[in-house]
């Protein structure tokens, strides 16, 4: 399994070489600075500000939470300036301000709602038969805004999908869709495939699976064998993001023409557009206008 290395620092890269060790003692293995007697947890924003938004080596931010410790929010990037103007013309005096973009932290038990039940049942379901264990398969559990997100290791996805569909305590019969998200700043896990599952049997329970793959190895196993409804959705995700779903019966482009170069929904693919002249003034194309992201 690949531990998600959220930041861009070299230390988290080295930690990915030895995931088991890094996981077992909560980051001390990955610690490269001699400050081993530091308190284990820090307030995330303080840490982020000290390090300019990048996670410190001492705190791999995206590992499964040890019981009893408060997990850190996940830094997925940083924002510069006071207003985030795309043209960089921040004259407020706060132009050098750097603040991290924090995604919701991993959840600690109890998750609340039906989420604990689902997690327990999945742990049991993965326990028997398959050689995939829950600890290997589920890298991180996020409960945010009343939704459960399981970050699943890509090689474990088919087993997890099968368990989710077939286990009587889970019975997620329907995969309502696959969506992709591109995070170019997340080294090693740039491309995410997001699956939404629905269990009708258990009264419309919904969970989300999130699977990531690095940009230079864009492979995720297909779940079409388990959920035939994912067929076109995976084709769309391949078309738009370039994620290759291994084992898909016919992974071809679906929305773009067959001979189209590139994958349009990736962040490095330009929106395109031409400047428009209107009453003497020129309006630039949408992606070149000033924006505040």
């Amino acid at each position: 399994m690949t531990p998600p290395s959220e930041g861009t620092s070299g230390a988290s890269g080295s930690a990915s070489g030895e995931p088991e060790a890094a996981r077992s003692d909560n980051g001390e293995k990955a610690e490269v600075t001699p400050a081993a007697d530091k308190p284990e947890q820090k307030v995330s924003t303080t840490a982020a500000q000290e390090t300019g938004g990048a996670p410190t080596a001492a705190e791999p931010p995206n590992l499964p939470a040890e019981p009893g410790t408060a997990p850190e929010p996940v830094v997925i990037g940083e924002r510069q300036g006071m207003f985030g103007s795309s043209l960089g013309n921040d004259t407020s005096g706060y132009g050098g301000l750097e603040s991290p973009i924090l995604f919701p932290a991993a959840a600690v038990r109890p998750y609340g709602s039906y989420f604990d039940e689902v997690a327990d049942a999945l742990e049991r379901g993965l326990g028997d038969g398959d050689d995939t264990t829950y600890g290997d398969a589920v890298q991180r559990v996020v409960v945010d805004r009343g939704e459960l997100t399981l970050h699943v290791a890509r090689e474990a996805l088919p087993a997890v999908a099968r368990a989710l569909r077939d286990d009587p305590a889970l019975r997620f019969e329907v995969c309502t869709g696959v969506s992709g998200v591109h995070y170019p700043q997340e080294a090693g896990r740039e491309l995410h495939a997001v699956y939404h599952l629905l269990s009708i049997t258990h009264g419309s329970r919904r969970i989300r699976l999130e699977v990531s793959c690095p940009d230079d190895d864009r492979h995720i196993p297909s779940i079409v064998a388990t959920y035939p409804s994912a067929d076109w959705h995976e084709r769309e995700t391949w078309d738009m993001f370039g994620i290759e779903f291994d084992g898909h019966p016919s992974l071809t482009r679906i929305l773009m023409p067959d001979d189209w170069p590139g994958h349009p929904q990736r962040k490095d693919y330009p929106l395109g557009g031409i400047p428009v002249e209107y009453k003497g003034a020129t309006v630039p194309p949408p992606d070149q206008r000033r924006s505040y992201s």
Partner: peptide, 19 residues
């Protein structure tokens, strides 16, 4: 998906007709 900005980081629609 939002990254905290003023624009959607990603908006994907699960359209029933597509499925």
């Amino acid at each position: 998906v939002s990254d905290g900005g003023t624009r959607p980081y990603r908006a994907h629609f699960r359209d029933p007709s597509f499925n």
